[in-house]
Design a binder for these strands. Structure first.
Lengths: 192, 192, 192, 192
DNA sequence: GATGAATGAGAATTCATTCAT
DNA sequence: AATGAATGAATTCTCATTCAT
């Protein structure tokens, strides 16, 4: 678009943040399909027009919410990596329900939205590499017997599934698996 | 299943099936949020009123699509279980992209829709039990070293993640994991 | 679009015609830029949604109004051509203020709207050919001294200008020109 | 002109001129209906507020654009009149596509806008008188056989029609008429 | 079994305009 | 001289749903 880049005021104006918060809340509670500018505005106690003032298109809003969430996630990941027990910290980071619920909402949305696809894909790749490197470090010698890439993927996959099924109330056997997996993870680190 | 069929017209009228097909296609291609009765009608080349004639509410339609998909999935699962190599068949069943893409769409939708939550939860539970039993049988003695419940959950989790990330174009390290996991699965079965 | 052609009921349902009438009126009185579905609905005493039911997009509505007007114009032209004094009848047809005001509105609109451009272009070409043929016939021998194509173009050009400037309240010298031109036209026919 | 200038800031500040240029461009390319302050601002690479700073209301902006265009036109007309071959120069001035396209846009707009109606009407009257006087002078004795007022009106009418139809891609027979008319005009002047 | 008509709600934008700084 | 914030009104369009035939 030819439009002069509409950087609205401070990237961190209180209003802007309120809108992002509201949108995030609506997404988690009612699903991405319901995160309309109207609903978000209502949730934030603002006029719909104001939402459009800060985020010209609904897509812009969604992407902005994603970016902020992704940035937070990166920070959390950085902390986890710095933990004395990085594997367990990684696992806790992965099954953090609140964050993961939002992530899953974005993943569902992204399947049909190019703008998000790109953003998520990039962030996911970076995180994944970081995680693999951390696991490698954490395992030390044991990395030979336990492929870090495989382990990283397993952790994400399992974490996602647990949160996902908790969301639908399904999940027969998940508690049992969680317990077993945590025990196994601890075993890995303990001897390492 | 708990949901009462609010269907009108023959259960298997060609029109009814065409509507279900169209709805499924829209869901996979454009996401559940876009599976409106109008879009589905357009896709099927039918009038919107006709869709409402068969499925009074949009929810009825979505649930009907889910029910049919779940029934198909159950049949596929039954076949997999009967396979001479049940573990590998289970794995192939799990990572069947087309089916899984639809399933993921339903899972995303269900988080915010009670009617589906119940339906999915029930079906998932039944499948899971069947899968666990199959794994137990397939492993025989080895079931002691490889908890079948954990294995079942791992298979689903990994399968879902692979399909999910393929959908977004993300997935660093997934191919490597898939290869490793299939090898490991084969190893299990080979000796079993 | 994949949508099943949405032929709404009888091409001549009363409602449909009321909408076309209202749109035409708004266009003439407030200009094409104000012929919004809302305004048209208000004018017709109908709900805006109903307008969209009959004309999915605003463009569809505008084009439909144009087509009807063009059909009417063709009929009027046919009558004029059949008149015992075709040249004068043609002139009267050309400076029919009501019709011409609408035509001018469409021409202004068409400059920036492809769908209309094509429709107008086609209709104008057909009419022009008919008019030229008529003039040729009316002039008989005199066609040698008065190029029918030129005359046809002059008649349209002058007619348009007169109506146009009457609309703006400008038009110094137009009355004088009109009188002179009509006298000249009469002279042509008289001797012919 | 009658309309009071509601201008703020220097009459010729670069910004003000940039806004006028942008508005003119939008009008020609997208039509007056799309010459909103926002679109104009975007086109000029400026903030919408700035446009309102220079032109409090949208109408002010449109009128200012018209005024400038009218002034330019008057200058061009003056040059044409001073030409050794004033009739041909007048004709070239009339069918200058760029200028005429803008004029037609204003005429279409003026039909429904009082402020413009007055401005255009006044300017058109002045120009017309000037043109008639010029033709009278150019024709000399021949003015008896070729009514200058009629000729002036013919020239405008034909010029407008040619540009108008070129804009819509219509115009069967227009080229032929143009050639004939130019020949005729030359004939008039040659012998004069 | 099917469909046309109608409606109210909601969604995404766009816009002109005001105001405080 | 310029601009960010805010707002209310309009606009186009989509949707689910109801109803009468």
């Amino acid at each position: 678009m030819a439009v002069a880049a509409r950087r609205i005021g401070a990237e961190n104006s209180a209003t802007r943040l309120a809108i992002l918060d509201a949108c995030e809340a609506v997404m988690v509670e009612e699903g991405y399909a319901n995160a309309s500018t109207r609903r978000v505005a209502a949730r934030a106690g603002l006029k719909p027009s104001l939402v459009h003032y800060y985020f010209p298109t609904t897509d812009d809003l969604h992407v902005a919410v994603y970016r902020r969430a992704a940035d937070w996630a990166s920070e959390e990941l950085a902390k986890a990596i710095a933990d004395p027990e990085p594997l367990m910290a990684l696992w806790r980071y992965t099954i953090d329900t609140t964050r993961m619920a939002l992530t899953l909402e974005f993943m569902a949305m992204a399947v049909h939205r190019e703008a998000l696809k790109a953003a998520i894909s990039e962030h996911a790749g970076e995180s994944q590499k970081l995680i693999i490197a951390t696991i490698e470090r954490a395992l030390g010698d044991k990395a030979k017997d336990n492929n870090p890439t495989v382990l990283a993927t397993m952790i994400s996959a399992l974490g996602r599934s647990l949160v996902m099924e908790a969301g639908i109330g399904a999940g027969y056997g998940h508690e049992e698996t969680r317990v077993w997996f945590e025990g196994w993870l601890k075993g890995l680190t303990a001897k390492a």
